[in-house]
Amino acid sequence: MGAKKNRDKNRDAPAAAAAEPTAETSAAGQEGQPPPEPKPPVQVLYCAVCSFPPEYCEFGSSLSKCKEWLQDAHSDLFQKYYSDEALQAKIGTLSLEAQSKLEQDAAKKEAKAEAKADAAVKKKLASRITIKRIERNKRKHVTAIHGLEAFGIDLKKAAKQFASKFATGASVTKNPQGQDEIVIQGDVSDDVLEMIEEEVGLLKGIPADNVEIVEDKKKKPGD
């Protein structure tokens, strides 16, 4: 019946496909009979705080926040997991000592996670972004931006934003120190600084004081 030809070749790959291996071997999908119904997926609720299914929040590092969230968002589940009976039942085959050890661990973990989060915020405030103007040859420059990830910015997406803004090439690469940075073709360092100051698109929440522009005139050995 419906001998549909496979015309939509979703080929997003850039060039490089030298010899074209057309995939027309034994195509012809089975679109004959009425297809059997797929089984519906189980709807799983995930905790908005720790991303686990709520029944596992107790093993995470943010139990009190998780509980707060669950009580607000799904009070029925909160009852199910944290009512006295539930707490009794879930101890299951575990001995009492083991259970209290578990609770201690959870508290410890939580404290640790909080300290870590605090440290992360401090680090973020202290982290610097460098916009480096690199001379490639006399007239050509590239602009390397380093440190955006500390502000929770997705480097790949940011690179895309730069590429379309400046209508040029932009990519995420590793610098010789092994850190990721965004490399934009052309000298756009001042424009990038401006974009950060104006918080264009993804570039939000970066204090302009943390940004500096540096020049790099020396040629770097190619990778």
Binding site: P41, F59, G92, T93, L94, D105
Partner: peptide
């Protein structure tokens, strides 16, 4: 995440409560 949606696609085993934190 796929397994959570379609739990029957793999055979299952279960560990006791004491093992959970080690697994995690």
């Amino acid at each position: 995440r796929v397994l959570h949606k379609y739990p029957y696609i793999l055979p299952m085993v279960r560990v006791d409560r004491g093992a959970i934190r080690f697994l995690l």
